Amino acid sequence: MSRSIDYGSLMHRAMRGLIQEVLHSVSEHGLPGAHHFFITFDTTHPDARLADWLRDRYPDEMTVVMQHWFDGLDVGDDGFAVTLNFGDDPEPLYIPYDAIKTFVDPSVEFGLRFETHEEEDDDGDDPDPGPDGPEDEAHHDAEIVRLDSFRK
C-alpha cells in the first residue's frame, strides 16, 4: 500500500486558514488602509446562506465586496457571516470557506483561486485553459489570481 502526501488538500486548508485569520483580524480591528476584498463563492454550496432573491439572481456563484460598509462580521471555524448592503437593503450572508472560489485584495495585488475537485477531473482535457493559457497544464488547488481580470 503506497501512501503519499496530499499537498493539494494541505494547501486548501492553509489558504482557507489564511482567509479565516485575515477576516478575524478585520472583525476585531476593521479594514486597515485601502484594503478591501472581492470574494467569489459558490451559491449552490449546501451550507451557504443567502436571501432567496440573491440565490435567484446568482444561481451558481456570486462575488461580494467588503469595503466601505459591512456589518456583523462573525468569523467561525467553517465560514463567516456578514451583512452587506445590496441597493440600500442590508442582507445577511453566511459563506463557508469551502464555498470560496476566489479571494482578492486588489489594494495589495493579492489573490487566491480555489479549484473544485470536479474541475480537477479525470482525463485532464480542459477545453478552456483559462487565463494562464496552455503553458499551465496542471490544475492547482490554490493559486494567485491575475488582477487584470478584475480591473476595468
Rank of each mutant, 00 (worst) to 15 (best):
S2A: 15
R3T: 08
S4D: 13
R13P: 00
R16A: 00
R16W: 01
L18M: 10
L18V: 14
L18P: 05
I19M: 15
E21G: 13
V22K: 06
S25P: 03
S25A: 13
V26Q: 01
H29R: 15
G30Y: 02
G30F: 02
L31Y: 03
P32G: 07
G33D: 13
G33A: 06
A34C: 07
A34H: 11
H35W: 08
F38G: 06
I39K: 03
F41N: 00
T43A: 00
T44A: 10
H45I: 05
A48H: 00
R49I: 15
L50V: 01
A51T: 12
D52H: 12
W53T: 15
R55Y: 09
R55E: 12
D56W: 05
D56H: 10
E61D: 13
E61V: 10
E61N: 12
M62E: 06
M62Y: 06
T63D: 01
V65A: 09
M66L: 15
H68C: 10
W69L: 13
W69T: 15
W69E: 14
F70Q: 02
F70E: 03
L73K: 00
D74Q: 09
V75M: 07
G76Q: 06
D77C: 07
D78Y: 10
D78A: 14
G79S: 03
G79Q: 04
G79E: 02
A81N: 09
V82C: 05
V82S: 02
F86D: 04
F86N: 05
P90T: 06
P90K: 05
E91G: 07
P92M: 04
L93N: 01
L93S: 01
Y94D: 04
Y94C: 04
I95F: 07
P96C: 00
P96W: 00
P96D: 02
Y97W: 01
Y97F: 01
Y97A: 00
I100C: 07
I100D: 06
K101M: 09
T102Y: 02
F103M: 07
D105Q: 00
D105P: 00
S107P: 01
S107F: 02
V108N: 10
E109K: 11
F110N: 03
G111Y: 00
R113E: 13
R113V: 07
T116P: 04
T116L: 07
H117T: 11
H117Q: 14
H117P: 07
E118T: 09
E119P: 07
E120N: 11
D123C: 06
D123E: 06
D125P: 06
P127W: 05
P127E: 06
D128H: 09
P129N: 08
D132L: 14
P134E: 13
P134G: 09
P134T: 10
E137F: 11
H139V: 11
A142D: 03
E143M: 10
I144L: 12
V145Q: 02
L147D: 02
L147A: 02
S149L: 08
F150V: 03
R151L: 14
K152D: 13
